[in-house]
């Protein structure tokens, strides 16, 4: 992509006895929409707060354009934050909230006026200048918070679960709007969420975290299709995870008593691995035509597809298909080499 703007180098953070970040290495590029994704408590907010300057790292470095900024106070950093609960100043109206940063920087009145108006328009709040922020709806407060940060033209915008408090419909709207705004202003967004769907649909790069460790960095497609380990596979969408597979050699993996061609290589011979099969990648076929055989245990209609559980000798498989199969029916399961995702054992 472009140039690196932020580099996290073996970042650690302790709160008392508890180590919350256990060595985060991450490059963030100009113009990138990067999402930190992980379950609650995995250290996403802490990472963001270290970048913003609200927490000091216990170890490691934060480089901004190649310069270590770990000791630079928050107010001198060229990043701005959209806070989780917006943190708008209740004693200022919409205009003055947005103008806050520019006033601090002693910009001229006409400059401030022009920038604030332009930014309010960008976030769809034209004419809201004099409104009391405490009386706005959640979605509108959200937009004020975004405008208040963007008006300062930061190089990087940090967003901590900004859509968490919105209802599902508004959330979807704001997702595409945020993406649009990011394209329009052309700066780096570092976005935090625990919602995998949100992460996959908005990001250029997804960083999956768990317990203070980065599990995988990749494009949404990579993360979804090629999870590197069981945690990522389990966290991103529903999956069939086969924990007791063996990599016979390059391009050949064995589980459930059969060998399967696959596209993965670089493992040791006979290395124990885990295999992920996405529910939508498995086809239900005639019993005769397949290696893995089983019986339909349940079928649930999900609107677009059926969710079918097939019971086999070794395990239950979850399958998404648009075809109907009766419970109790004997079926075979089929999948191609590229549907098999081999991961290192955790």
């Amino acid at each position: 992509m472009h140039n690196k703007i932020i580099e996290l180098k073996h970042l650690t953070k302790n709160f008392g006895e508890q180590q919350v970040l256990k060595g985060i290495d991450l490059n963030i590029y100009e113009n990138e929409f990067l999402t930190l994704l992980g379950p609650s408590g995995c250290g996403k907010t802490t990472t963001l707060r270290i970048i913003a300057g609200f927490e000091e790292p216990s170890g490691g470095e934060v480089l901004f354009n190649g310069v270590d900024i770990s000791k630079v106070p928050a107010y001198k950093r060229e990043v701005n934050t959209v806070f989780q609960k917006y943190a708008l100043f209740p004693f200022l109206n919409v205009y003055d909230n947005v103008a806050f940063g520019l006033k601090i920087k002693k910009k001229s009145k006409s400059f401030i006026d022009e920038k604030v108006k332009k930014t309010l328009k960008l976030v769809g709040l034209e004419g809201f200048d004099k409104r009391n922020v405490t009386l706005l709806s959640g979605g509108q407060q959200q937009r004020v918070a975004i405008a208040r940060a963007l008006v300062n033209e930061p190089k990087v915008l940090l967003l901590d679960e900004p859509l968490g408090a919105l209802d599902a419909k508004l959330r979807k709207e704001m997702q595409s709007e945020l993406k649009k705004i990011q394209k329009e202003v052309g700066i780096t967004f570092i976005f935090v969420t625990h919602d995998q769907e949100e992460a996959l649909s908005m990001s250029d790069t997804v960083v999956v975290m768990n317990e203070g460790i980065i599990q995988q960095i990749g494009s949404p497609v990579d993360i979804y299709n090629e999870p590197e380990n069981r945690f990522v596979a389990g966290f991103i969408g529903e999956s069939n995870i086969i924990p007791d597979a063996v990599m016979k050699r390059d391009l050949l993996v064995s589980f459930d008593g059969f060998d399967f061609d696959c596209v993965d290589k670089g493992f040791k011979e006979n290395e124990e691995v885990e295999v992920v099969l996405r529910p939508e990648d498995i086809d239900i076929v005639d019993v005769e035509n397949s290696k893995i055989k089983g019986k339909v245990k349940s079928i649930i209609f999900k609107g677009v597809h059926y969710e079918i559980v097939v019971e086999t000798q070794y395990r239950d498989y979850l399958i998404h298909t648009t075809d109907y199969f009766e419970t109790g029916l004997h079926v075979g399961l089929s999948f191609g080499p590229e549907d098999i995702h081999v991961m290192y054992k955790m």
Partner: peptide, 24 residues
């Protein structure tokens, strides 16, 4: 988080006190 927001927007400790803390 309001104090942090002020810092985030470029206000040093003194500015933050007069523009945010004192008002609140």
């Amino acid at each position: 988080s309001l104090i942090e927001a002020a810092h985030d927007l470029g206000a040093n400790n003194v500015q933050t006190f007069f523009k945010v803390t004192f008002k609140l």
